[in-house]
């Protein structure tokens, strides 16, 4: 079971791998689209990599509700519980 800090760090690593964004730019209040400039194709790659890393399932219909990094951390945290 990962803590929220560990989930955030894990997401930052996945996002860095996919987009090259510096891990420290990935903060809970950042919007994936408006702040981090992540397009829908990159978002799906990040989602699938996060599923594998954290052993959770993020349904496609949930992805559109994950507008900020914090939303994703919360979703993954609850899904792990």
């Amino acid at each position: 079971m990962a803590s929220n800090e560990e989930i955030l760090a894990g997401l930052a690593e996945i996002i860095n791998e996919e987009t090259g964004l510096a891990p420290e730019a990935v903060q809970p209040d950042k919007s994936f689209t408006d702040d981090l400039d992540i397009d829908s194709i990159s978002m799906m790659t990040i989602v699938v990599n996060a599923e594998e890393k954290f052993g959770v399932r993020i349904p496609d219909e949930e992805v559109k509700n994950l507008s900020t990094v914090g939303d994703a951390v919360d979703f993954i945290s609850k899904a792990q519980a």
């Binding site: 829908s40 194709i41 799906m44 790659t45 699938v48 599923e51 594998e52």
Partner: peptide
């Protein structure tokens, strides 16, 4: 290869 080994979810969107 990915489809056969890991399933459709892992086939990259790109």
């Amino acid at each position: 290869d990915t489809l056969r080994e890991k399933g459709p979810r892992r086939v990259l969107p790109m």
